[in-house]
Design a protein around this nucleic acid. Structure first.
Lengths: 257, 257
DNA sequence: TATTCCGATAGTGAC
DNA sequence: GTCACTATCGGAATGAG
């Protein structure tokens, strides 16, 4: 078995692995073993047919026992569950009051959910990850850009049912809001395709993560291709964001409670 | 004083420095502090006017007290002296009999003399160096290619008096040999400009040492741009060449007797 | 874009 | 192309019998 099936074991035998946070017949939810942020979980559909799909097509076909739309809705619930698990964990770690709605809402907005355009691991997996990107395992430009450019596909953008997701304000209509959940979540990323590249290469997803400059997700500062500088800066942004909590920042370790 | 005048001290105060092997009013001869071969000496003209010349022009003008041709002839003698010093040193180190003409002739052919097209150090300096290029200080491609491509200007090719140096066999005539010394020396290098590059960049000396592939000077094997592989190979070639001498090869240390 | 190892490539600073 | 330091960029292997 090649490295491309490194996630298979969590699908086949979720009960055997420490890093499994939850499983049922439909999904396994694990801590990413190489977390790129303070919290970085993966939702793994266990259905064999689904697990071998590519992100861009998984919801645009039907399966033996369910439609693409049904699958989308089902997995969306598991993604919400993964988000909730992150929130619950952070509430504990950060000593947040359960009724501090503002802080909790802020944390929810600090989580993004979606796929990589070209995953290296073959088993379909959904990233549920906080947006600090402050982690020792965040080691190079492609790591960062895989979450902060259009290489990252937000889960919401894959809903096979047409919505107003892709319409700008002038095109929005009142009836378009029917099926969207009304949570105050923000899955958006810095999909800065507008950088000057030759047109052919900019369309290639591999080149997007290779050639996109490093833009801070907090403040949009451009670090060109100086990854170390970005790392230092992200650590500062992290401290700025989390120092208001009653906790030793050194104990905010990626995927560790 | 910037690093570009690192050699100035040997010109101003040759008596103060351990690495000075010889000096008189005209030149200082030193061991290169970062030898790129088993033996790597530098001949430094001490005349202020001469010291600030560029290699390509130094012999094509006249000076207050001598002509370019006179300077060329004078420095040629000092280069021969530096070569002789290397030979004498190696005869000792390698336990060679003084009457072993063959081995000594072979060593002479194993030394090259000349300039870098674009020296980084401003004081004019002539490299007198064995052609093994087997040294811990040989650290990257530019080091190697600066001695083995047309970036290296053989001293003989700078004689301002027209000779047959640049004529091919069909153009050679009997009168053209008048002023050349008749020693059995070979200053030639692998000036492989014929590698496929775009014409504009291949003419740029900086691009020659950057873009020329790494070719073994012993066997012409092409190592592309794999410098580490070349290093390993040069060490093997070195052992092959010197194992016939009665000496522990580990003691053949660059510029150390 | 899974990681890790190794090495090639590139920029800087040096007083 | 001086050196030495740091960092970025780039390829290859990775399994299992």
């Amino acid at each position: 078995m090649s490295f491309r099936y490194a996630l298979q074991k969590y699908i086949d035998h979720p009960e055997n692995h420490e890093e499994v946070l939850f499983y049922d017949d439909n999904v396994t939810i694990i801590k990413d073993l190489f977390p790129k942020s303070l919290r970085h979980y993966l939702v793994l559909p266990r259905n064999k047919q689904v697990s071998r799909q590519h992100p861009q097509e998984v919801f645009n076909r039907d399966y033996d026992d369910f439609t693409g739309q049904q699958l989308y809705n089902q997995l969306q619930n598991y993604c919400e569950k993964a988000k909730d698990m992150i929130i619950e964990d952070l509430i504990k770690v950060l000593n947040i009051c359960n009724d501090d709605i503002e802080k909790i809402a802020d944390l929810k907005n600090f989580i993004q959910v979606g796929f990589h355009t070209i995953p290296s691991l073959s088993n379909l997996h959904i990233h549920v990850i906080t947006k600090d990107f402050n982690s020792p395992k965040m080691k190079h430009k492609k790591h960062y850009n895989s979450f902060t450019t259009s290489f990252f596909i937000n889960y919401k953008d894959l809903n096979p049912k047409p919505t107003n997701n892709h319409l700008d304000d002038s095109q929005k209509t009142e009836y378009s809001d029917d099926d969207n959940d009304s949570q105050n979540t923000d899955y958006s990323t810095n999909n800065n395709n507008s950088q000057t590249c030759s047109p052919d290469t900019s369309l290639n997803p591999e080149n997007i993560i290779k050639n996109s400059r490093l833009i801070c997700t907090y403040c949009s500062k451009d670090f060109q291709f100086k990854f170390k500088n970005l790392k230092t800066h992200l650590q500062l942004e992290f401290v700025t964001k989390f120092k208001r909590f009653n906790v030793d920042l050194n104990k905010l370790t990626p995927n560790q409670s």
